[in-house]
Amino acid sequence: MRKLGYLLRHTLLIIISFVSIFPFLWMIISITNDSKDITMGKLSFGHALIENIQKAFTMADLGKSFMNSLELAVIITITSIVICSLAGYAFVVFPSKGKEILFMVLIASMMVPFAARIIPMFRMFSQLKLLNSYLCIILPAIGAPFLIFFFKQNTHAFPFETIQAARVDGCKEYQIFFRIFMPMMKSTYAAAAIFSFMASWNNYMWPLIALQSNDKFTLPLTVANLASGFNPDYGVIMVGIIVSTLPTILVFFLLQKQFVEGILGSVK
């Protein structure tokens, strides 16, 4: 009976694990095959790797899209975690009735479906003549209610005596935040940075609306474009898929602990 349970559990886990990683194996195999073999479901390595990569970087300009995505993700991650952590910190260190209400208002905005905001946002940026610029991607991403919430939760764990001691030593409030809080909360910042980076890296709907010229396109837009043509070249698409998955996989394996923490942040 015990043996059977043991066997059952491992069978379940092996099947689910295999299904989970199969699409990854599929993309690694497929990137070496040409489009025709990929659509036919060929399950062995081929010889088209170099050709696929060459085509992807000349025909589709994947490198440019990659740099665009990276630039946006880095700018958004840095600005949003600095601004949101400052707010989350202040909500805990300087509590007041007014701030409590403000916090509730900010959090409530998480319930607003994105679709209910896109049309006015589109009109706002079109009046400001900012469509097709990166400002219209960056600005709406900076104030992230989840990040404010995340930093507020984590600030509770920050030792208040440290702040008191710093004040006695004559530190200004902003100095305490930048010179003491930030370096001490490295792991929280790493988790938040991963969350923010992923959100920006994956962002699709708003850039699809706001960005119009190919040289501004981010990776999801370029990859989606490649796949939506009449006769898509799956070899090139696989390069795009791998290029857009690689950075997040890398971050995941390097910072697995913070990665999971970032995801769990809302539960603690």
Binding site: I83, C84, L86, A87, Y89, A90, F91, V93, F94, S96, K99, L102, L106, S109, V112, A116, R117, I118, I119, P120, M121, R123, M124, L139, P140, I142, G143, P145, I148, E173, Y174, F177
Partner: peptide, 23 residues
């Protein structure tokens, strides 16, 4: 203290609440 929450709140207000009301 209020200056610390100002920026984040302004961004959420401008890009979440105002569009929602306009919608």
């Amino acid at each position: 203290a209020w200056s610390m929450v100002l920026l984040a709140s302004a961004f959420v207000l401008i890009f979440s609440y105002i569009p929602m009301i306009q919608a």
